[in-house]
Simulated assay, not measured.
Amino acid sequence: MSDLGTRIRVYRGMRGMTVRALAGEAKASPSFISQLERGQTSASIGMLRRIASALGITVADLFNEDDEPAHRVVTRAERPELATGPGTRKFLISQRPLRTLEMYAGEFDPGSSTGDEPYTHGESQEIFLVLRGSLTLWLGPAGSAAAHPLGPGDSVEYRTSVPHRVVNDGDETAEVLWVISPPTPSAGEAAAGQAAAVEAEQS
């Protein structure tokens, strides 16, 4: 239990989450999370699942005592793909368990977008970089968002709490990167779930 608690505390620190924030995400009391991190109490499997989900990892990651590898190589063909809208593709670059940052690669066909409405996720720092093609990143609430036309090599940095939306209004497929630090709960949970699904299909 002491080792488990230590790993929970380490992952929480990597995510930049307070004890109270983790407790809220996991539907537990801050005192319980604090006692669990100190190895003074145990948790049910259901509770561990909620804690792992809030941290963007799996329950197995909480019990993994293997040393962190010096490096991890992921080929383009091995990148887990996340579910997205028509004409778009999004791939997880940073591998589970998500630690201090998360990175995604994306592709937008002409006329495609991240959706009709801008979205937010957590309160992190996000960098959006265009590798190929041209598109527009909208920042701000719907109806008053500012348009930022971007071409190859252009980037924008913003908080994930700011509503944002991406539209490919060019005539070729655009390729982009997202870098987010620390990982946001919603994005981290989706990435972990999708990666686990891909691993299950390949096993």
Rank of each mutant, 00 (worst) to 15 (best):
S203L: 14
V59P: 00
A28M: 15
V10Q: 10
G39I: 14
F63N: 08
R20K: 13
D171E: 14
G170F: 02
E175T: 13
E172Y: 08
E199C: 09
F128C: 05
P163W: 02
L62C: 06
M17L: 15
A187M: 15
R89W: 05
L48A: 07
D169M: 06
L177T: 00
A196N: 08
L137S: 03
I33F: 13
G39L: 14
G46D: 13
F32D: 08
R38Y: 12
M47T: 14
Q125Y: 14
S31P: 09
D109R: 11
A70F: 11
T75A: 15
E25N: 14
P118R: 04
T120F: 00
K27H: 15
A195H: 04
G16T: 07
T173V: 10
I45V: 15
F108W: 06
M103N: 04
Q125T: 14
G115Q: 12
A77D: 15
I180C: 06
R89Y: 00
Y104N: 04
F91R: 00
L139A: 05
L129V: 10
T120K: 02
M103T: 15
Y158M: 05
H148L: 01
N168P: 05
S113E: 03
A187V: 11
A146F: 02
I33D: 04
S155K: 10
R38H: 12
R89M: 09
V73F: 10
